[in-house]
Amino acid sequence: MDTRHFTFALRHHMVADTLLLEFHGELDAWADLELAPRVAALLRRRRRAVLVDLRSVTFLDAGGLRLLLRISERSPRRKGRVRLVLDSPQILRVLRITGVDGVFTVLGELPVPFAADDTPDDTDVPA
């Protein structure tokens, strides 16, 4: 399948002991199906904290919510809840309407150490 037709992507990298997951595009059922195995593999590496950047997400539905909840369920709990970074009122509204916002710590911008590190370890777009 030609990857230029995919409407989503995932970049990830480490900053100190935190795994940063950057999602791009549409987080829907297709993204959940394709990205969930990769996210699960990353979370098995025993990171102490997980930060999910949703600032480049343009659409979020039940499939995307399912993916976010899987991240929360599988992430190590030693450093507290998974943090989400988002600046979209529409995405925040979906999280609030569904009650999912209470599962995460929601931030309006990347913490300083993450904003300074823009080199990804990997980019995942399903093949």
Rank of each mutant, 00 (worst) to 15 (best):
I97W: 09
L107P: 06
L68K: 05
T105Q: 11
R66Q: 13
L67M: 12
R70I: 05
K79G: 01
R93T: 13
P111Q: 13
Q90T: 09
R78E: 15
S72C: 13
T105C: 10
R78M: 07
R93E: 12
I97E: 12
L65A: 03
E109K: 14
S72Q: 13
L60N: 04
V100I: 14
I97H: 14
L67N: 08
V82R: 02
I97L: 15
D87L: 02
D101L: 09
G99F: 12
V94C: 03
D101C: 13
F104Q: 01
I71Q: 01
L68G: 05
G108T: 15
R74K: 15
P89L: 03
R96A: 14
V112R: 11
E109G: 13
R74T: 00
S72A: 15
R96E: 14
G80M: 12
P89H: 07
F104C: 03
V94M: 06
V112T: 07
P113M: 00
V100P: 03
L107F: 10
G99T: 01
P76H: 14
P89F: 02
G99W: 09
V112K: 07
R96F: 08
S88Y: 14
G63A: 05
R77D: 10
L107E: 14
G102R: 14
L92K: 05
E109V: 11
G64A: 09
R74F: 03
P76E: 09
L68D: 06
G108Y: 09
R81V: 01
D61Q: 04
V94E: 06
S88Q: 09
L95G: 04
D101Y: 08
D101M: 07
R93Y: 06
R74M: 11
T105D: 15
I71K: 03
R74G: 12
L65D: 04
R93P: 02
R83W: 00
V106A: 02
D61N: 10
K79I: 00
V106T: 14
S88R: 12
P76I: 00
I91C: 03
L69E: 11
R66G: 04
L86E: 10
D87S: 15
R77S: 12
S72L: 10
L69P: 02
V106G: 02
L92Q: 09
R83K: 15
S72D: 15
R96H: 13
L84K: 03
R81C: 07
E73R: 15
L60A: 06
R83D: 00
V82C: 03
K79A: 13
K79D: 07
V100L: 06
D87V: 11
L95M: 11
A62I: 12
G99N: 06
G80T: 12
V103N: 01
G63I: 10
G108E: 13
F104R: 00
G99M: 14
S88A: 11
D61G: 00
V82E: 09
T105N: 05
R74W: 01
R81E: 07
L69D: 04
L84N: 01
R66W: 04
V100F: 06
I71C: 05
L92P: 01
G64C: 08
E109M: 10
F104K: 04
E109F: 14
I71H: 00
P111V: 07
T105E: 13
D101P: 05
L110G: 10
R78Q: 13
A62D: 01
V103Y: 05
V94T: 14
R78A: 11
S88E: 10
A62M: 01
V106S: 02
